[in-house]
């Protein structure tokens, strides 16, 4: 039996949250949050139609292949899943994507990227973690680099970023480092998010608000 009213359907969806509240907390307008719901519905129904994004659905949306694994896609999924229940609800999706909005504060982007690289969640990016990430990516690519070259790249990075020379990069060092090298935050901004209402015009049909701005 289908839903007769889209609003009732949405509010009975697990993890759904009021777009007005989400817009107030994030870099998005109400219209943009509603357009994001169209994207969310598509991703969250791609394998299991339960109104939640499972890891396989997230991977399918990123790689167009649910079986492909990637260290960073896993890490990003875990960071989006801030309730730590193994799935991403609509509120988590919007709040997390907000960091990637062109208008989001740079400090939020810097903090998110730090948490992404802090694989073991120790509060530091450690030398071994950084090498592990480089090796994981090399494994997934056709690029071959000798261990000496990898060591050299990691050493040079630590020479520049680890100002305290204690073998780990803390959040303050990370902030100073990326402010010197803003290109490292390139992946933290998604220009698409500014045009999300154009990408999902169907949100207008399902809008809950008369005037969304």
């Amino acid at each position: 039996m289908g839903c007769f009213h889209s609003k009732i359907c949405r509010f009975s969806t697990p993890g759904y949250e009021d777009p007005t509240l989400l817009a107030a907390e994030t870099a998005f307008t109400v219209s943009e949050v509603e357009a994001l719901y169209e994207l969310f519905k598509k991703i969250s129904s791609s394998i299991i139609d339960d109104g939640l994004i499972h890891k396989e659905e997230f991977q399918l949306a990123i790689f167009k292949n649910q079986n492909r694994r990637d260290l960073f896609a896993d890490r990003i999924f875990d960071l989006f899943d801030f309730k730590r229940n193994g799935v991403i609800g609509f509120g988590e999706f919007v709040r997390s994507l907000s960091v990637f909005h062109p208008n989001a504060p740079v400090a939020d982007k810097i903090a998110f990227a730090f948490r992404l690289y802090d694989l073991r969640q120790t509060g530091y990016i450690e030398r071994e973690e950084l090498k592990e990430m480089v090796l994981a990516l090399l494994n997934e690519s056709d690029l071959i680099l000798s261990d000496d070259i990898v060591e050299m790249i990691v050493d040079k990075t630590f020479d520049e970023a680890d100002k305290k020379s204690d073998g780990k990069i803390d959040e303050e060092e990370w902030k100073e480092f990326v402010l010197m090298k803003p290109s490292l935050l390139k992946n933290m901004t998604l220009p698409y998010l500014k045009d999300i209402t154009l990408a999902f015009p169907s949100f207008v049909m399902n809008s809950e608000v008369e005037d969304s701005e």
Binding site: L39, K42, I43, A61, I62, F63, K64, D70, L71, F72, A73, D74, R75, I76, L97, F100, L116, Y117, L130, K131, M133, V134, L137, S141, L143, I153, V154, K156, T157, E160, K181, S183, L184, K186, N187, L190, Y192, I196, A199, F200
Partner: peptide, 25 residues
């Protein structure tokens, strides 16, 4: 050539490029 490990990671990891979420929408 990459002289910076983070530059290498952000350039090489397709899992860190969320723009693909919007492709084929």
């Amino acid at each position: 050539p990459f002289y910076n490990a983070f530059e290498f990671i952000s350039s090489m990891s397709s899992g860190f490029d969320l723009s693909s979420l919007f492709e084929g929408k």
